[in-house]
Amino acid sequence: MTTEAMIRREADRDLEFAAWFTGLVGEEKLRECIHCGVCSGSCPLAGHMDFGPRKLMYLAREGFADDVLGSNTLWLCTSCYACTVSCPQQIPVTDVMYALKRKAIESGKAQKRHPVAVMAKGFTKMVRKRGRLTEGYLIAGLALRTGVHKYLGMAGMGINALRTGRISLRHDSIKRHDELTHLLDVVDQHREEVAAK
C-alpha cells in the first residue's frame, strides 16, 4: 500500500450520495451521530468486516460511496439489531444498513460475488418463482455460484440432514404462485410509475 491510497481529495466525495444517505432518516438524524462506536462495539460481526458500522456511517456521511457500497460490511450484517438498541442517538442503524444493501445492488457497486449477496439474489429468485424456499436447493445454488469446494466440508452434515428428514429434495411451492409473481410485478410497475412522476 502506497501513501497515495490514504489521501482523499474533496473531488473524491460523492455529494449526491452523501445527501441521499443523510436523508435516509428524518430530520437529519444521521448527522447527529457522535461516533461513539457502540454500534461497532456491539456488532457480533464487526471484527470480520472491512470496517464496522460506525466507520461505515462516517464514510457514507462524507460521501465516500465506493468504499461504503463496495464493502463487505453491508453483507456481514445479520440484522441482530444490537446496534440499533445501543445507539445513544437512537439512529436506526440496521434499517440504514438495509437501505445501503439495496443501494449497493442498484448502483452496481456491490461486491457481486460476496456469498451473502449471492444468497440474497438466489433467495428472491426462488421466492418469486415458487413463493417458498426449499433450503437444500437454496444452499446448493449458493455452493454452485460461490465455489462448491468450500462446501465439501459440510457434506457430512448435508447427508445427516437428508437422513433425518430435515432437508427435502422436493421443491416446496405455494398453490397460487402465479398470483405472487404477479403481485411482485405490479409492485415493480407502481414503483416505476411513482419514479416517473
Partner: peptide, 25 residues
C-alpha cells in the same frame, strides 16, 4: 392456507417494497 415466504432478512436487502408486499400477503 397457502402462506408464502415472509422474506426474512434477505428480501429486504434486495427490494424493500416487494419485501413488504410479500409479508403483507
Amino acid at each position: 392456507e397457502d402462506w408464502n415466504c415472509c422474506g426474512a432478512t434477505a428480501y429486504m436487502a434486495v427490494d424493500e417494497l416487494k419485501a413488504v408486499a410479500l409479508a403483507t400477503r
